[in-house]
Design a binder for these strands. Structure first.
Length: 156
DNA sequence: GCCAACGTTGGC
DNA sequence: GCCAACGTTGGC
């Protein structure tokens, strides 16, 4: 199993919003970055776990854990004229952008803030904590996953 | 709201 | 292919 961290602005879609979605599931649309696209399209597999991270938030941090329930498929919001994520350069016959479906698994007992993560031993190399890191879909190692879960007091 | 860091675009 | 200009992300 692989582990990931996905960022969402809670104003747009918070972890609580995901839990309130039908079947606690939503499609992860709107990623318009090639590196993140490759991860969505090629690497994220059914059953993989993701930290659900609140970015641009007060405070920012990991709010919960979710699971990939549908592997990479074309992000159709890129084809919808007028849609917030419309991209005229993405051809339905050869889509540029992809998305996955994720389902809420469990909330963190409390928000694990970015400031807090920075002080946890063993997370120094975590992509999230690297200077200038802006990737909205990023890998988490099994070790990092275990450390964060232990720190948060949830089952890995 | 500020601004540093990064990604993309486009002229050459 | 280089690189300046621009747009976006996201912490603070």
């Amino acid at each position: 199993m692989n582990y990931w961290l996905i960022k969402s602005e809670p104003e747009m879609c918070s972890y609580a919003d995901l839990e309130k979605s039908p079947k606690k599931t939503t499609y992860w649309d709107g990623v318009r970055n090639y590196q993140a696209r490759n991860t969505l399209r090629d690497l994220m597999k059914k059953g993989d776990r993701c930290f659900f991270y609140h970015s641009n938030a007060e405070p920012s941090g990991i709010a919960g854990i979710c699971e990939v329930v549908k592997e990479g498929y074309p992000d159709w919001t890129a084809f919808e004229k007028g849609h917030e994520h419309f991209d005229e350069k993405s051809d339905p016959d050869n889509p540029t952008w992809f998305m996955v479906d994720v389902k809420a698994v469990r909330p963190m007992p409390r928000l694990i803030t970015l400031a807090e993560l920075k002080s946890v031993k063993g997370l120094e190399k975590m992509v999230l904590l690297q200077k200038g890191s802006r990737l909205s879909v990023q890998p988490v190692t099994a070790k990092e996953w275990a450390i964060v879960c232990k720190h948060a007091g949830v089952a890995p």
